[in-house]
Amino acid sequence: MADIEGDIFDIIAEKAAVDRGKIHANAKLEELEVESLDVVEIIFAIEEKFDVDIPFNANDQELEFKTVNDVVKAVEGLIAESAG
C-alpha cells in the first residue's frame, strides 16, 4: 500500500503544481491550495493510473476529500474491492 500512497502524492504534486515535499498524509487539500478543478483532474489521473472508478461528484457535500489521506484511503478501498 505504500506504493499507492507514493503514487498519489506524485499525482497531486504534478496536477496541482504543489511542492512534493509539502505533501503528507494529514495535509489538507485546501492548505496545499489544491483547487476544485485540480481535484477533478487528480481524480481522473488516479482512475487512469490504478484502473478504478472513483464515485466522486463535486456537488456532493458529504463525500468531500479534505486531506490527502482521505484520497489515499478511498483509492486503497476501491483497489481492494476490485481485487476482492
Binding site: 477533478v40 481524480i43 481522473f44 466522486f56 461528484n57 463535486a58 456537488n59
Partner: peptide, 8 residues
C-alpha cells in the same frame, strides 16, 4: 461526466 458536476 468527467467534470463531476452532473446530477445522479
Amino acid at each position: 461526466e468527467a467534470l463531476r458536476v452532473m446530477a445522479t
